[in-house]
Amino acid sequence: MNTRAASLKNPSGVLERVYVDHHGWLRHWLQSRLGCPDAAADLAQDTFVRVVARREELQRSPLRQPRAFLRVIAGGLLVDHLRRRDLERAFLDALSARPDPTALSAEEREILLETLDRIDKLLDRLSAPVRRAFLLSQLDGLGYAAIGRRMGVSERTVKRYMQQAYRQCLAALL
C-alpha cells in the first residue's frame, strides 16, 4: 500500500485531491444509505481503491464532476453490499429455522454461504420470471410443465426462460 501511495505522486495530485476533498462527503453519503458507519467507511475505502486502479485514465482526463463519478463507483459497490447483507440475513434466518442449526460446522457454513453468494450474484442478473423459473426447476425440482402451470405460462416459455438463465450464468462464469 505504501509503494502504491508513493506511486500516486503526480504533478496534478488529482487522486490526492479527490480523496481529501470528497472522502468525508462520500462516507456520509454511504452512511445515509446504509445506516452503519463501519460499513460506510469500508465501502468508501473500496471506492477509492477502485479510483486508484483507474489513475492513468484519470490523469489523462481530469474529472469534471468528481462526486458524480464517485457516486457511480460507490453505487455499484453499495448495491452489491446490500445484496450480500440481505443474503446473509436470509441465510441466518433459514439456518435458524432448521431443526438443528449446529449440524453444519462453521467451515461448512462458510463454504455454503460462499456458494450461495456466487449463485446469488449470477441470479441477480436475471429478470424476475427467468429467475423464478430457474429456482423452481433447480431447487424445487419441478418439471417444466409444472413450472408453467405455477407461473401461468406455456411449457415452451419455461424452456426458453431456462435456456436464457443458463446462458447468462455461463456468460458470467466464463
Binding site: 443474503l87 449463485i119 429456482l135 431447487l139
Partner: peptide
C-alpha cells in the same frame, strides 16, 4: 446447495 435452504435464501 441444499434445496430447501437454497430456495429460501436465493428465492
Amino acid at each position: 446447495v441444499p434445496p430447501g435452504l437454497g430456495a429460501e435464501v436465493l428465492g
